[in-house]
Design a binder for these strands. Structure first.
Lengths: 238, 238
DNA sequence: CTCCTGTGTTATCGGCGATATCGCCAGGAC
DNA sequence: GTCCTGGCGATATCGCCGATAACACAGGAG
């Protein structure tokens, strides 16, 4: 281990090669084409190598999913930021649905056959991206439900749309479904009139201060303390 | 074949027995527990019998899915018609989501790993039921999109919600997700005027929640408590 | 030079879906 | 009553799968 750089480089290189070959097999032959033997043969190596590098088959599948997903993102990521967080959200939705339709086997790998608690690294990446978009909407004062619920709702709608479209013959897919579902999700989690005009906690605190009497979810005492804190926040970090 | 009645009766009986045993295996051990050998052994028969009765493994899976789905419907179908088609729709949604959460392996069998054009008999039954509910809404003059698009949208939302909930650990599942998604779907396909949107404190609370880490005017403890209150405000008056 | 770790290679295990083959027996044909 | 035949149970088998044990070999560490 005196030369870990080149050693792990060689290791990483064969690993990347196997993942790339496996992704090709998956895309061309579907999930069933991705057997350890087929991958090993196509990569010019042996079955035990896969287990040394990936632990087990699930490790290989995770690596393939992450590779395919990030590759797709890299190819498509020429999009300039739109400014409006809801417009950014739309772009993210379309990107994700496009990924699912372009890589059905990969998408099924990431989201099909769900197991409680288990989440593939690739879908974790996707969910984190979604969380950032949701947060941006919230920071703009246009989110009317909790961030977590919003993210779950959008995730549900997106995966559902992709699965539904994938179950149809390709020529019968109605892409309006994606748009309608997308806008329905937006309508469910956002408000048209932004509650906050300027970014930062101060403006948000002021906006909340104004609607505080309507905050019936809090007790009188909580409302009182909250009011004091909001006053401090409205002044700013002085 | 002079006595087709009793002959096919015996055939149907063993068939039903195998399906019932297989459903039990699937419910207890998950999808992987449903191997032809395991089913044959548990049913007290031999592997070739399964192929004689069901053609191949997919035929067996279809039969199991249909059996499980119709069994669930039979057990739960004590619901009296509600009159209002949208209310009927709500009941159907809740029934379907309940089925998915109660039978995760069956649900994955029906909707996971989608293949273009292929639709399991069980999901065909479910989709037909959905179509009837949609048609009733249309007949009442309250559908604002095409029946087909409406059905696809609802199907997407429903399967997406179930998959999302199934991917979470059981104790972390937020059942509001199903309700919010359901009502969002209703809002997207019906002409019912959505509840008048009073801004309320939710959006401002979410805006502040998103920028909370920047709120340097508060101590860590205050920020923590404030975060909990803001989450409650996002849910609304409960 | 010797050891020791990591890799390539072969062989193998138990299980899977699917099928060929054969003995058997019930029921109709005559 | 006897023969024939079609479907069933049972066994064995094929090819493939995921996974792992066992072993030969290379090449740096000491």
């Amino acid at each position: 281990m005196s030369d870990p750089g080149s050693e792990t480089a060689g290791r990483d290189r064969t690993r990347a090669h196997i993942v790339s070959v496996a992704a090709g097999l998956l895309a061309s032959g579907g999930r069933d084409a991705l057997s350890t033997r087929a991958v090993a043969a196509a990569a010019g190596t042996q079955a035990p190598t896969i287990y040394r590098l990936f632990g087990d088959k699930e490790g290989l599948l995770d690596a393939v999913a992450e590779f395919g997903f990030t590759s797709y993102l890299r190819d498509k990521k020429a999009r300039p930021p739109a400014g409006d967080p809801v417009e950014e959200f739309r772009a993210g939705w379309d990107l994700h649905v496009g990924f699912g339709l372009a890589n059905p086997a990969l998408f099924s790998l990431m989201y099909g056959d769900p197991q409680p608690g288990r989440r593939s690294p690739a879908s974790a990446v996707a969910f984190r991206m979604l969380g950032e978009r949701i947060r941006a909407i919230a920071a703009a004062g246009r989110l009317k439900v909790g961030e977590r619920l919003a993210a779950d709702l959008v995730h549900s709608a997106g995966t559902g749309v992709v699965f539904t479209l994938l179950s149809m013959p390709e020529e019968r897919r109605d892409m309006r479904l994606s748009e309608v579902a997308r806008d329905a999700a937006i309508a469910a989690i956002t408000t048209d009139a932004p509650a906050v005009e300027t970014p930062g906690p101060a403006a948000a605190a002021m906006a909340l201060r104004a609607t505080l009497p309507d905050a019936t979810a809090l007790t009188d005492g909580e409302r009182h303390v909250l009011g004091e804190w909001l006053d401090r926040l409205a002044v700013g970090p002085a």
